[in-house]
Design a protein around this nucleic acid. Structure first.
Length: 582
RNA sequence: GCGGGAGUAGCUCAGUUGGAUAGAGCAAUGGUUUUCUAAACCAUCGGUCGCGGGUUCGAGUCCCGCCUCCCGCACCA
């Protein structure tokens, strides 16, 4: 068989081609290539069984015909097993050839991009509200969104990372009320100004909870702001400046960047076009004083309204989200928009997408592919979502600092002689890696209970385990006084069991990456990297690289440098840094 | 009530869309270091895949009916 980047795809093509010239098969036949259990081989084809069933044929006979038509192939062994499975096992020579062909991150990138057409995509993520500090609840959107943007980028797409900050919502009415009543000076809030703002916001919430007249007052402050009243605009601007500085501090720590930080306020002069458009095409209607969209054809949204203008005349996030779609189409020429938010907003996005579809269709405009990449809630120890208003939420910055501090205890324990700068660097990379990985290694649609132990566990399927594998490989090359990638020219095919297991695992990387990209679920990549690191650790333990025999040494060096390459490529996609020494 | 999600080993979770004898980590027990970093490796123990039906060569995965938990459902985002 031909050496191809993604061998799942290559086997699929090969079998389809073979079937097309084999009696009894037709276009209905789908090979259904899957990675196989180690006992059976590298890949298996399950497709003969359902095909034979459909046409009333004997599956084993059909499978035999297919094997015969495939003919002898030096690159793999093909077996018929069970009721009609085809098992494929690549030869060590073929594994060697694959490793030789794909030897750099450029090779992977190019091969990955060759199979797909690039597009312009906006990733909308993180999106904290101003006047509040970022807390644990923001970590998932921020990290998952960052990784999704990295995946798109790796795929050669034109990515815009947009932080759709909540700087125009109802919270401002409440906050302005509290600021005015307390006569706070926004120029002089002291050291932790963002925390002061948060306190004021909390006070405001208490006020409106206690007294209906305060609620009215807050609402009118918001309307004044939205109408451009000078004093309120001034307050609003200062609040946003303070908030943004505090966000940027967190992003810097996390190593996250944005192309745009266009808050909801950016669209405030664009919401009238939304009202006009929806009204003109009779997509919206008046209900209980508000302007809403019902989707008659939909079971639930026929009765559950999508409110695009509140009864007090103010816009809300439905309005700005619609205006945002327009902007991203017109100015960014987006072909795809991905929203990374909490799963509790599923209804909102379903309604948003339905409304946008109708509106754009009515206008005859191109609508990008819209998708909602949602994730579960982070829960407290009581199994309830961590609240923002009651109780003290864990500040994101504190969380990161504590992760680093905890990592430092272990780094110091392992390397007591290290100087402070190096100690700090390693602790940061290990601590932040652990935080990121804890979130990414679990299926994003699941809720999880927040706990320090979970986030900072350094054993099992964790970032430090992967970083440790990287450090060990680097250590081997350091001892050899050679760079990874060199000294492998004379490498021969894998021989020992653990060499072959490692090589076998390396070859799976492309199909895992493909699945991760297709489902936008980073945990697939995490699981794979963990398995790879595990196979490497077994190999490391049983097969020494620094041996006298030059043949053995060369072939093991090749395995080391490819493992390193894939681990680092994978971790880079996850936004996790690595170390030469741990 | 409608909709979304979850229920798999004592605990935390995978399970590539219907494949072969359901896998990891943690915890527990035992072993491995004059050998490239033991933050490691190897082994043992551990299962009525929530319950009951059904579909078929084959079901943790699909269809039906239940049970439990979390979340959303009119002007917060």
């Amino acid at each position: 068989m031909q050496i191809s980047y993604d061998l799942t795809g290559e086997l699929d093509r090969t079998l389809r081609e073979t079937a097309s010239r084999t009696d009894g098969f037709n276009d209905d036949f789908s090979p259904e290539i899957r990675p196989a259990d180690l006992r059976f081989g590298d890949y298996q084809a399950n497709g003969v069984l359902p095909f034979a069933k459909k046409y009333g044929l004997n599956p084993r006979e059909m499978a035999e015909k297919l094997i015969e038509a495939l003919g002898e192939d030096e690159s793999m062994d093909v077996d018929l097993a069970g009721p009609g499975f085809l098992n494929f096992r690549f030869t060590p020579a073929f594994r060697l050839a694959w490793m030789q062909k794909y030897s750099s991150i450029h090779d992977f990138r190019e091969a990955f991009q060759a199979s797909r057409k690039p597009f312009r995509v906006v990733v909308d993520f993180s999106s904290p509200n101003t006047a509040k500090q970022m807390h644990v609840g923001h970590i998932r959107s921020t990290i998952i969104g960052d990784v999704i943007a990295r995946l798109f980028d790796f795929g050669g797409n034109e990515v815009t990372r947009d932080n759709h900050v909540g700087d125009w919502g109802t919270q401002f009415g409440i906050l302005i009320l509290a600021i005015k009543r307390s006569k706070s000076d926004l120029e002089d809030l002291g050291q932790d100004s963002i925390a002061k703002l948060e306190d004021l916001y909390r006070e405001g919430n208490q006020l409106i909870a206690e007294d209906e007249s305060f609620r009215m007052e807050a609402r009118s402050e918001l309307v004044k702001l939205q109408q451009g009243e000078k004093e309120n605009i001034g307050i609003w601007e200062k609040v946003n400046a303070i908030s943004l500085a505090s966000f940027l501090h967190v992003y810097e720590r996390l190593g996250i960047r944005f192309d745009d930080i266009l808050g909801e306020s950016f669209y405030r002069d664009k919401v009238d076009a939304v009202y006009e458009g929806l009204t003109k095409h009779a997509i919206c209607e008046e209900s209980e004083g508000a302007m809403v969209v019902f989707h008659r054809e939909h079971k639930r949204f026929a009765k559950q309204p999508f409110i695009v203008r509140k009864s007090d005349g103010a816009s809300n996030y439905a309005t700005t989200d619609l205006a945002t779609v327009c902007y991203r189409v017109e100015k960014l020429r987006a072909e795809e928009i991905v929203y990374v938010t909490d799963g509790r907003q599923q209804d909102h996005f379903s309604q948003l997408f339905l409304t946008a579809e109708k509106w754009f269709a009515a206008e005859g405009k191109f609508l990008p592919h819209l998708s909602h990449v949602w994730f579960g809630t982070i829960l407290g120890e009581d199994n309830k979502a961590i609240k923002t208003r009651e109780g003290q939420p864990v500040k994101l910055l504190d969380l990161l600092d504590e992760a680093i501090a905890r990592a430092k205890v272990i780094v110091r324990q392992k390397n007591p002689e290290l100087d402070e700068i190096e100690m700090e660097k390693r602790s940061r990379i290990i601590g932040l890696g652990a935080i990121r990985y804890a979130d990414l290694s679990q299926d994003r649609t699941l809720d999880y209970v927040f706990s320090w132990d979970k986030l900072l566990a350094l054993q099992g399927n964790t970032a430090p385990y992967l970083q440790y594998a990287v450090a060990r490989i680097r250590s081997i090359f350091r001892k050899l006084k050679m760079e990874p990638g060199s000294g492998e020219e004379a490498a021969s095919a894998p021989v020992t069991e653990s060499e072959n297991l490692l090589a076998r695992k390396l070859i799976y990387f492309p199909s895992v990456l493909e699945q991760t990209q297709r489902e936008l679920k980073p945990h697939h990549l995490c699981g794979y990297l963990y398995e790879l690191a595990t196979d490497f650790s077994s190999f490391y333990n049983s097969d020494k690289v620094l041996v006298d025999d030059p043949d053995v040494r060369a072939r093991r060096m090749l395995l080391c440098s490819r493992t390193l390459l894939i681990l680092e490529t994978g971790l880079e996609l996850l936004g996790i840094e690595t170390l030469a020494q741990m």
